[in-house]
């Protein structure tokens, strides 16, 4: 029996509007406080600058460039992506959200917000790394697709893990500890795909399977998150 039939109130059945509301609420909060984006950018630009200065006299190999790029993106994500859930628990709004929103829309709304947050970081980090490390990307389209696919996977895992650690007392430490093992396949594949997209000699046939692997990881993590999130989110003990 639906709410509309129960109470006579008009109910909008759109699941997507609920997701949009959660995404919009997080975005509005972030634009007003700028806490997560500042933390993420501070960490990523600082680490990028340190690496650039310390390797100024020694040109980095393409392997090192692609690995360092993903190290910076990974640790930036670990620094700031847990905020969306931690802030809900700290400010006492998590229960209000549990009482009102379907768990699946909370997961997808928060995931979309984390994706956008990480995209903002990548929009700064990637051009800077290309300049500082003198990276030449021979297949820019593949490079962009790899970043996009990596972003989705990182955000999906971060959203799921953030919901778990937000209810504990050791949030920052646990977040990276729990996320890293799950993200190892994604990070290895993303580093490999980035390296391939930097090299003009490689053929599409060699890059495509690696990118497909990234998207498979994304789909698996998003599906798992969608199915498991309700059990994580409901704190009913």
């Amino acid at each position: 029996m639906t709410k509309s039939s129960l109470s006579g109130r008009k109910r909008n059945p759109s699941f997507w509007r609920s997701i949009g509301a959660i995404f919009g609420k997080d975005l509005a909060s972030e634009l007003r406080t700028r806490f997560a984006v500042n933390t993420l950018l501070l960490f990523s630009v600082t680490s990028l600058t340190i690496v650039s200065f310390s390797t100024a006299r020694t040109p980095l190999t393409k392997e090192a460039q692609s690995a360092l790029l993903w190290i910076v993106i990974f640790f930036s994500a670990m620094t700031g992506l847990a905020r969306s859930f931690v802030r809900e628990e700290e400010s006492g709004t998590a229960d209000a959200l549990r009482l009102t929103a379907p768990a699946e829309s909370v997961f997808l709304g928060k995931f979309a917000f984390n994706c956008v947050l990480l995209l903002c970081v990548e929009a700064v980090v990637v051009p800077l790394s290309l300049i500082f490390w003198a990276v030449s990307v021979d297949a820019p389209l593949f490079f962009t697709v790899v970043l996009f696919a990596g972003n989705i996977g990182l955000s999906a895992v971060a959203t799921l893990m953030a919901a778990i650690v937000a209810q504990t007392s050791m949030q920052a430490g646990l977040f990276a500890v729990l996320s890293f093992p799950v993200l190892i396949p994604l990070l290895f594949t993303a580093v490999r795909a980035t390296l391939l997209s930097m090299d003009a000699v490689r053929q599409v046939g060699e890059i495509a399977p690696v990118i497909r692997m990234l998207f498979v990881f994304d789909i698996v993590m998003l599906t798992l998150g969608f199915l498991l999130f309700d059990y994580i989110w409901r704190d009913r003990k």
Binding site: R17, S18, K25, A28, T33, S91, A101
Partner: peptide, 19 residues
């Protein structure tokens, strides 16, 4: 939500409830 106005809070809770 402390960052949102009363109207934004009302609108948010209304929308996530599907109303």
């Amino acid at each position: 939500y402390p960052e949102l106005t009363p109207v934004e809070n009302l609108k948010f809770f209304h929308t996530v409830r599907g109303l």
